[in-house]
């Protein structure tokens, strides 16, 4: 009996393995940094050469500055970011305890601006929001991405995975078809990465600018001739949560440089 149960269990594990086999095994995961050329890697590693570090400097100034007369600065509540924000970006997106809604890091900054600082929130993809995001992300550099599932975001992980595997657009392609099943191959001369969001916000040479993960999502959707979700849409947050579950324990390298 136990032998049969054992065999059934082994079969179940085998089938489960097959079901998961269309994604990258944990020990073969590579970040965009791992996959890019040595020159771009060197540019990222050198804080004086990394163009995203300009945004970090700007973000540090914004962190310390009061957004208006009598309004608290980020620092007046949170203190020294090097202390209080250490590892925080690695745990985003996070669920807001009062509303139950999951915020990505820029969304949380906007919520602080509206709720705590009583100012108009910085727009998505604005220089100010990217700068604050870059400054906060730097405080998690080298730290492992925390598993969203382990912090109670299971539902969002499942929704995000569904989006990751769904075909979109006139070209009828899913994220998974390129980034899980064909990573490393040449798409018209460009090497397809594994889509692990370890380095955002990052300076992309193609953009000649620092940009967010949602900007990257938009680019992919436009490329397959699909209508992107609006900036800040919950679908983007779900997708980010899934990608961070998929990349759990990988080291953050924000603010990154990418080709």
């Amino acid at each position: 009996m136990t032998g049969r149960a054992g065999r059934a269990f082994a079969l179940a594990i085998l089938l489960l393995g097959h079901a998961l086999a269309d994604d990258i095994p944990a020990n073969q995961r590579l970040s965009g940094h791992d996959m890019m050329g040595a020159e771009a890697q060197a540019m990222q590693r050198d804080d004086f050469a990394n163009p995203a570090m300009l945004a970090v400097k700007e973000g540090e100034a914004l962190w310390k500055a009061a957004p208006g007369e009598g309004r608290p600065s980020c620092q007046s509540c949170h203190g020294d970011a090097a202390e209080s924000m250490k590892g925080v970006a690695a745990r985003y997106p996070a669920r807001d305890a009062s509303t139950g809604r999951a915020f990505d890091l820029p969304g949380q900054i906007q919520a602080c601006q509206t709720g705590r600082q009583a100012v108009a929130p910085s727009a998505r993809e604005s220089a100010a929001l990217l700068a604050l995001e870059a400054y906060l992300s730097l405080q998690s550099r080298g730290m492992p991405l925390a598993s969203p599932r382990a912090r109670g975001l299971e539902d969002a992980v499942l929704r995000g995975e569904k989006l990751y595997r769904q075909r979109f657009g006139q070209l009828d392609l899913s994220c998974a078809q390129c980034h899980s099943q064909n990573w490393g191959r040449s798409l018209g001369g460009t090497r397809i990465p594994q889509a692990h969001p370890t380095g955002y916000p990052l300076f992309r040479m193609e953009w000649q600018a620092i940009g967010s993960l949602q900007r990257r999502f938009r680019n992919c959707m436009t490329g397959i001739r699909a209508e992107p979700f609006p900036a800040g849409a919950p679908e983007w947050v779900d997708l980010e949560i899934y990608l961070k579950e998929r990349a759990a324990d990988m080291a953050m390298d924000a603010p990154g440089v990418r080709p």
Binding site: Q166, R167, G169, Q170, L171, M221, R225, E227
Partner: peptide, 13 residues
């Protein structure tokens, strides 16, 4: 197709 971009809606490649 899902979420066909507005510019391509109803059009074949």
């Amino acid at each position: 197709q899902s979420r066909m971009a507005v510019a391509f809606k109803g059009r074949t490649i």
